[in-house]
Design a protein around this nucleic acid. Structure first.
Lengths: 227, 227
DNA sequence: GGTGGATTTTACAAAACCATGACATTTGTC
DNA sequence: GACAAATGTCATGGTTTTGTAAAATCCACC
């Protein structure tokens, strides 16, 4: 409870408005007026969420976000963009933002997104970093999998898919969502590619890949990880 | 009681007419004259129902509705469309509207739909997300059913039919309603198809499918779920 | 520029799901 | 009980979705 939100925004009026709004909602707020300080506070104070303007002195929002991700910081980022400032959401999301909002926006709209992002993050933090499937152990953080003593080699994509399913906590994940999250918004493989990776995951992890115990198909929807 | 209805409509005459009509019927009314404000009020004030014009300044009805759903807001939406404005109701229902009405409509027609939607929503909020039938447990939200330890596999259509019957709370559901709700307004299978799906539901869920304990036939009407 | 692994595409087979109609059985009515 | 209408059930076929192997491509690294 009482999540901490870092607001990185150079316009004073907007910044204080955001602080007031979020404080009134019960969030604790932190501020920064330029990109360099913003990055510093983000790393130092580990907020639960960042509201990030794109146009910023010193270091713009894209660069800041990309740098965070480069440092393996997974804090949820909600980008704020003036209309027309950004051609397509792709750029922002590629830099690693989790959602974006076009100014001017209504307060409720903002709060709804903030809540959604925090909920998603909460869920993420709840998912264990290790999975056990019969005799196979998977360390999602370190990207290592073992069957008994022997190492099982999984590729980066396979780990990412597994993590996404684990975060879904048993809910099915659609093929489209696999593509959006694992592949990103700039790559466009066919949805059949997903099936192939599922097949290889099953081949490596399931006792009987023909009758999967863990990675289940949800016909017409996608796949789910069954505990 | 005293449900709150949000009216999003740019034509002043129509808007005041709707407000007058609904107020006279005992509903509390809220208004918005364009899509952006409409979305804001919808999120802020959480009405029990929204009357939504399609042609709107700022943000049209389809987009508004789709955005609501994206934010996981399930408020019932009744779309109002001028004749010829919309080729098929499918588009609106695809955007997540619950019903639609073509202008000009009679006041009684409108009130009937409003009542129907509110009743349906009320019911929905009352129906539990899990059903128990002897040893079979059904989680309608996650779409998983178990008999003892073992999973019982139900198809998407079967879950949808079960949910519809559960929401009816023991009232019989007609074959036509099954088709309208589960199959949608674009598919037209014969009513016999419904019977077949009922048969497979019984085969999977009933102890003795010949003498169903839960899924009862109401001769000349349809089927009901008996608790 | 060659090599090896990862990834994607492609193509085809298999499985799941669904719709239909025939025929048997049950129900309601007279 | 006889009849007609409604429902149960099964076999069948068609369509969509999924499984998977093999070929093609990509890409980092040497």
């Amino acid at each position: 409870m009482n999540e901490r939100v870092l607001i990185i925004e150079d316009e004073t009026a907007m910044r204080t408005a955001l602080v007031d709004l979020l404080s009134a909602e019960g969030y604790r707020t932190l501020m920064a007026a330029d990109g360099a300080r913003g990055l510093e506070r983000a790393l130092n104070e580990k907020p639960d969420l960042i509201l990030l303007d794109i146009m910023l002195p010193k270091l713009d929002g894209f660069a800041l976000c990309a740098e965070l991700r480069r440092l393996a910081n997974a804090v949820p980022v909600l980008m704020l963009t003036a209309k027309g400032q950004i051609e397509d959401r792709v750029t922002g999301l590629d830099a690693g933002a989790d959602d974006y909002l076009v100014k001017p926006f209504s307060t409720e709209e903002l709060l709804a997104r903030v809540r959604a992002l925090l909920r998603r993050a909460e869920r993420k933090s709840r998912t264990p970093l290790k999975l056990k499937l019969d005799d196979v152990e998977i360390d999602l953080a370190r990207q290592v999998a073992t069957r008994g003593k022997r190492q099982v080699h999984l590729t980066a994509k396979e780990f990412a898919m597994l993590r996404l399913m684990a975060e879904a906590e048993g809910e099915p994940v659609t093929r489209q969502r696999f593509l959006d999250v694992v592949w990103g918004y700039t790559a466009f493989p066919t949805t059949r590619t997903v099936d192939n990776h599922i097949a290889s995951l099953r081949a490596k992890l399931e006792r009987d890949p023909e009758e999967p115990r863990w990675i289940k198909t949800v016909h017409g929807v996608g796949y789910k990880f069954d505990r």
